[in-house]
């Protein structure tokens, strides 16, 4: 479903070229839960944003559902994001002036009717039924991340990309977030989580390691899953 070929992202900095991503080849199948591990600065976020149609690679290509993402124009790429990709971040990035439901609705791509009831049902499922009209600053970190999860899921994307989703959470909340991601995957979704911890490890069905922008271990293709 998602493949990338010789994906490179270089930054020109005063101290020379920084290779954030260096010749990454990767293939992710539908229904996979992929964990990408790496130390700080290894290029995890860069990889995630590049796979998520948010950041132009220096070269290489990303093919998502048969479309070369960076051959699309900006507007079309934005449409792919809104309809097919959900993001979850370490810092939650909730919109501070919208209540819980409003934040989840922000993730709706406008293509489904009954978005509000769907949001509320989703929040109910995530254990936030009693928090629907609270503002983000009234929530705990774990609750915030579950709102972010609901936002990422509300448009029923094919792919959820999570950048250290448990980075600001205690072990209990981390597990809960992972469980929700797992459930999403089990219903047919595809999940890629980048992390430097191992909270996600038990939930993933494939793990690759990243170092200095290169994949140093782990299968590049999931051999158990079918399509690519």
């Amino acid at each position: 479903m998602l493949t990338c070929e010789s994906l490179c992202k270089y930054y020109q900095s005063p101290k020379g070229m920084v290779k954030s991503l260096d010749e990454i080849n990767l293939s992710v199948s539908k229904g996979e839960f992929l964990e990408v591990r790496g130390h700080s600065g290894s290029g995890k976020t860069t990889l995630l944003l590049t796979l998520g149609a948010m950041m132009h690679p220096t070269h290489g290509k990303v093919v998502f559902k048969g479309t070369d993402l960076y051959r699309l124009n900006r507007a079309k790429r934005a449409r792919v994001r809104s309809s097919s990709i959900g993001f979850v971040f370490q810092m939650f990035h909730l919109i501070p002036y919208l209540d819980v439901v409003g934040n989840v609705l922000a993730g709706d791509d406008g293509n489904h009717s009954g978005a509000r009831s769907k949001s509320e049902a989703l929040l109910q499922e995530l254990g936030l039924g009693h928090r629907l009209n609270h503002l983000p600053n009234q929530l705990s970190a774990g609750e915030k991340q579950r709102v972010a999860l609901a936002r990422a899921m509300v448009a029923s994307p094919d792919l959820i990309l999570a950048d250290e989703p448990t980075g600001n959470l205690d072990p209990e909340n981390s597990k809960e977030v992972c469980r929700h991601l797992k459930r999403y995957q089990e219903k047919g979704g595809t999940v890629i989580v980048v992390t430097h911890g191992d909270a996600v490890h038990d939930f993933a069905n494939r793990t690759i390691d990243l170092k200095a922008g290169e994949i140093i271990s782990g299968p590049l293709v999931d051999h158990q899953a079918g399509d690519a």
Partner: peptide, 13 residues
């Protein structure tokens, strides 16, 4: 951060 997230959610300029 809000602008970033709107972009990630697929909103245009």
């Amino acid at each position: 951060s809000e602008i970033g997230i709107w972009r990630a959610l697929g909103k245009g300029g």
